[in-house]
Design a protein around this nucleic acid. Structure first.
Length: 138
DNA sequence: GCCAACGTTGGC
DNA sequence: GCCAACGTTGGC
């Protein structure tokens, strides 16, 4: 199983909204970036991801599960763009802030640090475990 | 609110 | 196919 990170501005789509969708999940639509799309194409049902709030909060707030494979993005007729559906699994015990991540040298290679603009990113198994530890969920 | 970093677009 | 111009994102 692989791990991912989904970034969203809370004023556009927040963890609370994602949670409210329950096990039905929601399309992660609106991505218009090839790198991000390509990662979504690599995702498999059952993969887990972090849900990150950008801008104001700048913290990882919860865990999501991929519940469909990549399919056309319903918000556009442009067939270049695809997305997956994700559902909320649970919130982190303690959110892990960008500051926390930057303070830990073991997480210096995270895409979140190196390429802060990429909205869908892979997370390595090591990074996944470390962040769960920082969240008090290990 | 500013600005650096990055991706995309379009003229040549 | 290159690259300048432009738009967007997101941390600060």
């Amino acid at each position: 199983m692989r791990h991912w990170l989904f970034k969203s501005e809370p004023s556009t789509w927040s963890w609370d909204q994602q949670t409210a969708k329950g096990s039905d999940g929601e399309e992660w639509d609106g991505v218009r970036n090839y790198q991000a799309r390509n990662f979504m194409r690599e995702m498999e049902v059952g993969d887990l991801g972090f849900f990150y709030h950008s801008q104001k909060d700048k913290e990882i707030v919860g865990i999501v599960e991929i519940c469909t494979g990549a399919h056309p993005d319903s918000t556009t007729d442009d067939d270049r763009w695809e997305c997956v559906d994700i559902k909320a699994v649970r919130p982190l015990t303690r959110p892990v802030t960008l500051e926390d991540i930057k303070a830990d040298p073991r997480l210096a290679d995270m895409v979140l640090v190196k390429n802060s603009r990429l909205s869908v990113q892979p997370v390595t198994p090591e990074q996944w475990v470390l962040i769960l530890q920082l969240a008090g969920d290990a």
